[in-house]
Design a protein around this nucleic acid. Structure first.
Length: 471
RNA sequence: GGUCCCAUCGUCCAGUGGCCUAGGACACAGCCCUUUCAAGGCUGUGACACGGGUUCGAAUCCCGUUGGGACCGCCA
């Protein structure tokens, strides 16, 4: 068993912020933190779109590692692309993370010793270190831009926590632009400066960054900074094994919320892509996952996003919900369907979902399967009763008359009565239960029909049967 | 084209030289339960990409082949 990666042996070489000076005898926070071996990880999205599945996956693994170690999870906004970055997307990304339950300890909206947490507000820092490189002669100017001169013959190696030893010669690299002509830093440069100055201990990001890492290594070297620990995550692909894109349907985590998926399930499902908590342990909470998570147990092979599995995990989580929480989840979908939710008490609606049981893989589906509890109109809309011939109708009427006369309107008693009745009258259960089901729900499939009858009540049952001329 | 990465059932994972005639989960099929469906229970179909080594022994280590993927932007 490999020992969990720790940053205990971490020592920072240079302190960083050009903004602050520290009195003699005191140390910069990053130095204190790294000496103390605190795990600090970050998710660094660029606000050029909503939080997509891949980003959510990366954020989630960072969160897991932070929480597993009692460390800090930092949100950094990489908004150096002036053209495409917007404040709206920044907010959408944060909302998406909150929805997934990924809370961060430091970020643009949260206090921290290592801010600012938006790259566009850290320009002085980037220029400070770029100037250093310039004065040392390892970088040169080209117009307004600052470019790092890549030395030849340098072996760039690092030990990735998940991919193992990776090594590459500097010879194949072109010179690296540090500062663009517009004064903004490039990704490969900013990421190095930020990860170091924010005292990031573990850089956990998508596998598509493996080939960027050697460049960054070069920059750490030039700045005489200690490397963080790197851990790359497998990519998430669509069904066709191609990078996940709009063609594969929903790509932003928000779309899954709107489809009726639970954040807990989405979290659970995403955690299962590239990691496992051990055999027979596939449904778990965030806390359980955090306790069990090991970066060194992350898989190398890219994974395919499989909706079927998501559906199953979602259903499992849906089943575990208490009635009130489940109602909170389903109610919006009933409203979206235009059902008169407000005509009922919360108790009635919650109990209806208890009767529905584990049916439906998403909240949206559950809402669709349970509309008849909310309104009879939904039933009338899809069922006209024309499938029953006169002979059947006569039988059902006889049964219904006796059923309605039952002293107590309780599911188990109604069922018992029906069984007895069906035996005595030599009528199959199916022949009376099915017409009853159709009249009450308008559907061929439903929970136990006597439970449905109990839930909607004797009067409502009578009303629905009357409407279909079954009284 | 160059560099780098990956390779176990359809899919997600387990497996780190002998416990593997390869295990679990999803999906699929069948059966049971049953007023329908879902759930649940049982059973089944189904994979170590290929070829060479190393070894007493390889899914596990090495090499090659093939197949996928990523990166090679003053995007991130």
């Amino acid at each position: 068993m490999t020992a969990p990666i720790s940053s205990a042996d971490y020592v920072i070489i240079t302190h960083c912020s050009p903004y602050r000076t520290y009195a003699q005898g005191t140390t910069h926070p990053s130095r204190r933190i790294k000496m103390a071996g605190t795990v600090r990880v970050r998710f660094a999205p660029s606000p050029t779109g909503a939080l997509h599945i891949g980003g959510g996956h990366t954020a989630l693994f960072n969160w897991l590692w932070a929480r597993h170690n009692g460390g800090r999870f930092i949100l950094r906004i990489e908004d150096t692309d002036r053209e495409r970055s917007t404040k709206e997307y920044e907010e959408t990304i944060m909302a998406g993370m909150e929805w997934l339950g990924l809370d961060w300890d430091e970020g643009p909206d949260r206090a921290g010793d290592f801010g600012p947490y938006r790259q566009s507000e850290r320009l002085e820092i980037y220029h400070h270190w770029a100037n250093r490189l310039l004065s040392e002669g390892s970088a040169y100017r080209e117009g307004e831009a600052v470019i790092y001169r890549v030395p030849q013959g340098v072996s760039l190696a690092f030990d990735d926590v998940v991919y193992g030893h990776i090594e590459m010669m500097s010879d194949t690299l072109k010179d690296i632009v540090l500062i663009k002509s517009d004064g903004m830093p490039t990704y490969n440069y900013a990421v190095v400066v930020d990860d170091h100055t924010m005292a990031i201990s573990h850089v956990i990001r998508g596998e598509d960054h493996i080939s960027n890492t050697p460049k960054q290594l070069l920059l750490y070297r030039a700045l005489q900074w200690e490397y963080p620990v790197f851990g790359h995550l497998p990519m998430i692909l669509g069904k066709d094994k191609k990078k996940l894109s709009k063609r594969h349907g929903a790509t932003s985590v928000y779309e899954y919320r709107d489809m009726g998926y639970m954040p807990d399930a989405m979290f659970n499902f995403l955690a299962l892509l590239g990691w496992s908590a051990g055999e027979g342990n596939e449904v778990f909470s965030r806390e359980e996952a955090a306790a069990l998570f090991e970066l060194s147990r992350v898989t190398k092979r890219s994974a395919i996003f499989d909706m079927e599995k998501l559906n199953h995990i979602n259903q499992e989580h849906l089943k575990m919900l208490d009635p009130s929480t489940r109602l909170d989840l389903v109610e919006p979908f009933w409203r979206e369907m235009g059902l008169p939710v407000d005509e009922h008490s919360r108790e009635y609606l919650a109990q209806s979902l208890v009767v529905l049981g584990g049916r439906g893989q998403t909240a949206r589906e559950a809402a669709g399967y349970s509309d008849y509890f909310v309104t009879f109109d939904a039933v009338k809309k899809r069922y006209d009763g024309s499938d029953i011939d006169e002979a059947q109708r006569a039988t059902v009427r006889r049964y219904v008359r006796d059923l309605l006369a039952c002293p107590e309107w309780k599911a188990d008693l109604l069922e018992e009565f029906t069984r007895t009745w069906s035996t005595e009258q030599a009528v199959k259960m199916k022949e009376i239960a099915m017409p009853l089901r159709m009249a009450l729900t308008g559907m061929k499939v439903s929970p136990g029909i006597f439970e449905v009858a109990e839930q909607i009540g004797r009067e409502e049952t009578k009303r629905r049967l009357a409407h279909y001329n079954l009284l």
